[in-house]
Amino acid sequence: MSRTKISERLGLVRYRNQGRHDAKPHITVDTAICDSGCPHQCTTYVCPANCYTLNEEGKLRFQFEDCIECGTCLYACDQGAVTWNYPDPETGRGVEWTFG
């Protein structure tokens, strides 16, 4: 049996300000740290929303749009690369659970 794709799972998530293209990021990542000295780059496989990925050149890339505010990267990153905040209700994005 093939594994459910993450895009399919995230397709079930309701986000705030979903139509907004200028939403303000609530998390910033200093990817220079991830790319230079990080021994594990674990955010690329422990983030439940797959917000952290490696591009073709093997560089770490972060996008906040799919973030479900779980907090995993706040704890999983032990290199000090992640600056974590809550999204602003008006200008940010972030999740809105139907069931939770």
Binding site: R3, T4, I6, R9, H40, C42, T44, Y45, V46, C47, P48, N50, L54, T72, Y75, A76
Partner: peptide
Amino acid sequence: NMKSMRENLGADKKIYDVLSD
């Protein structure tokens, strides 16, 4: 556990794949 995920998961098995399995 987050530390254990760091050590045991990877590009071919991410957190949500464990749920699928």
